[in-house]
């Protein structure tokens, strides 16, 4: 009996260790992939900020650093970035020279790791259960089970080894979650500041130049935002608790009276995105949404100047 326990424990241990190892290996690989990607975002940002010549240098600097796979992944946005002309006017909104990680991309990577983790743990439990279900069916009516007797050592072994494996996995996830959290909660310097206001049942966004844009109207005429630049929305509510969510940017935060909360995000490529309310606020809760469109910085500057 004891042999079987030892064997099963060992298998469980090795498999779980392998899970963590594979997942962290994957994490390392993705981190390696993410680093040049970040450099490349930096290139995009720098591109927007600096004269074209500098951008070209940055771009050249980025490409050799990246390995083949990364170059493939990054190719499309890079070309777009290279195509966009530089605009000195947006300097103030551009990311600083320091690396800015896009939290949405970090979220997607981490989510992928977590899924692997879940599938492996779930798979182990499910397979063992199915094996037991098939193997140990009742053969005779009066048959009783034959679970080996427990003693203190076995009992503690079966408590502590799994506990440490679970704890290792917990800490692995916590560490990675914390890393992403730091990106999500530290607004890069020079981010485009927007003031958000929520009330039943409407969003309002006030830009730095005083332009105020309505969430409901943005369904037909999306609010434009600059691509590649970090954007921070600091919001409060006039009445009840609402919550501002940008599904595509993997971010949300409640908006309430008496406190100001923020979210920040950035988009690496131009596109259409929606935002909506995700905290129950009454009869119009599902009707508090709108659209944004990320466009090259010059286009955004021209558009917002017109709205002021």
């Amino acid at each position: 009996m004891t042999k079987w326990y030892a064997f099963a424990g060992a298998v469980l241990g090795v498999v779980s260790w392998a899970t963590v190892a594979i997942a962290s290996d994957q994490a390392a690989a993705d981190a390696a992939a993410a680093a040049p990607a970040a450099t490349q975002e930096e290139a995009v940002a720098a591109d927007a900020a600096a004269p074209a010549a500098d951008a070209a240098v940055a771009e050249e600097g980025a490409v050799p650093a990246a390995d083949a796979a990364v170059a493939e992944e990054g190719a499309a946005p890079m070309e777009e970035a290279a195509v966009e002309p530089a605009a000195p006017a947006v300097e103030e909104h551009a990311a600083p020279a320091a690396t800015v990680n896009n939290p949405a991309e970090g979220w997607n990577t981490l989510w992928h790791h977590v899924l692997i983790d879940l599938y492996v743990i779930g798979g182990i439990f499910a397979l063992i259960t199915i094996a037991f279900m098939v193997t140990y069916t009742r053969k005779r009516d009066d048959q009783e089970g034959d679970l080996p007797p427990m003693n203190l050592v076995l009992s503690l072994t079966w408590a502590l080894i799994p506990a440490f494996i679970f704890m290792a996995d917990d800490f692995y996830l916590a560490a990675n979650g914390w890393k992403l959290w730091i990106d999500q909660r530290n607004v890069p310097e020079g981010a485009l500041e927007i003031k958000g206001l929520a009330y039943m049942y409407e969003w309002e966004f006030e830009f730095e130049n005083g332009a105020v844009l309505s969430g409901n109207e943005s369904r037909e005429n999306p609010i434009l935002l600059p691509v590649g630049a970090p954007i921070v929305i600091r919001s409060h509510s006039d009445d009840v608790v609402h919550s501002l969510m940008f599904p595509d940017f993997r971010i949300k935060e409640d908006v309430m009276p008496g406190r100001t909360t923020f979210i920040w995000f950035m988009d690496s490529a131009p596109g259409d995105h929606l935002f909506t309310c995700t905290e129950y606020c009454g009869v119009g809760h599902s009707n508090m949404w709108g659209r944004v469109k990320t466009v090259p910085a010059t286009e955004f500057e021209a558009w917002i100047a017109e709205k002021a």
Binding site: P103, G106, W107, L110, W111, V114, D117, L118, L173, A174, G177, W178, L180, W181, Q184, S243, M245, P247, R250, I251, K252, E253, T278, E279
Partner: peptide, 16 residues
């Protein structure tokens, strides 16, 4: 599926 929901950074998107 509760494990990702335990992670603040993942939940920033998945909450609600």
């Amino acid at each position: 599926t509760g494990i990702p929901l335990a992670m603040t950074s993942i939940t920033l998107h998945l909450a609600e």
